[in-house]
Simulated assay, not measured.
Amino acid sequence: MITEFLQALSTQSFLQMALIAGLLASLGCGVVGTFVVVKRITFLAGGIAHSVLAGMGAAAYYGFDPLLGALVAAILSALLMGWIHLHWQAQEDTLIGALWAIGMAIGLLFISQTPGYTSNLTSYLFGNILLVPEQDLWLMAGLNVLLLLLVGLFYHQFLAVIFDEEFARLRNVPVTFFYLLLLCLIAVTVVLLIHVVGLILVIALLTLPAAIAGHYVHSLGKMMVIATVLGSIFTSGGLALSYAPDLPAGPTIILLAGSAYVGSEIVRRYRAQRLARRSIASL
């Protein structure tokens, strides 16, 4: 199975572009997914991800690139949900859930009115890494550069906002600005992952590699590196495993990542119980 994939990879340009797309997406999900896991804002990230369909549908209806529409919608929904988190915490879950549903409903309505576009809906909902066009690879690369640049410039500010907002305020760090900027980085990463695993599964790839990394290291920087490597393994491995039996690559990638997470969680709990027994025995 793997041998067949490697042989095809050496000659088929669409597989080469799919592999590059997976690696580019892994970089974004490794860096930003670590923030999502540590800050515990997975639900917020899910709301941003599923609201993106409104922008994609509107862009397709008016004749623009759906990925650009996704980027605009993702950033707008990130800012809106960030404002809700900061000012309406009592109703936060309900409001984000409502925006999540409204965004998808608007997107579906636009798509239903776009001639000839409905057949491509599944490629955005479930992902189709084998059909990533070259111009989208350039867009993904540019978004990765933007992500790394912003994280590199404001790493310590993000660190303060994630671990101790009150301390950050005492140090005169503009917490609201950096919190909203973090949500915008999540929005950009969601757009990176759309082609790879689709809107429905995007949160899994955003969080699972970072969650696995968190089982073994506690340094934010090390988590980012390990999560990026794991994301690359999952996207490349899922692509390889799905090629020969002609399975959809997106769900295969998520199944591989999910299985790895479950296995890692079992190992982590076993090690914790073993250490606890040793500690009791030594008393």
Rank of each mutant, 00 (worst) to 15 (best):
M1R: 14
I2F: 11
F5N: 06
L6W: 15
Q7R: 14
A8R: 13
I20H: 07
L23G: 04
L24Y: 02
L44F: 01
A45K: 01
A49K: 10
H50Y: 12
G55Y: 10
A60N: 13
Y62C: 02
G63V: 03
L67G: 01
L71P: 06
L71S: 06
L71V: 03
V72A: 14
V72I: 15
A73Y: 14
A78T: 12
M81Q: 15
I84K: 06
H87M: 08
H87Q: 02
W88I: 05
G97D: 02
G97M: 01
A98R: 07
L99C: 04
I102K: 10
G107L: 15
F110P: 11
S112T: 14
T114H: 08
S119D: 05
Y124H: 03
Y124W: 11
I129N: 09
V132H: 11
Q135C: 06
L139G: 05
A141G: 06
G142N: 08
N144P: 12
N144W: 12
G152A: 03
L153Q: 08
F158R: 04
A168K: 14
V173E: 08
V173A: 04
L183Q: 05
L183T: 03
L183K: 09
L183P: 08
L185K: 14
V188P: 09
V188F: 00
T189P: 05
T189E: 06
V202C: 03
G214F: 01
G214I: 04
Y216L: 07
G221A: 15
M223I: 05
T228K: 14
T235M: 02
S236H: 10
L241S: 01
A244N: 06
P245C: 04
I254H: 01
L255K: 05
G258V: 07
E265W: 11
I266A: 04
V267S: 05
Y270W: 14
R278D: 03
R278W: 01
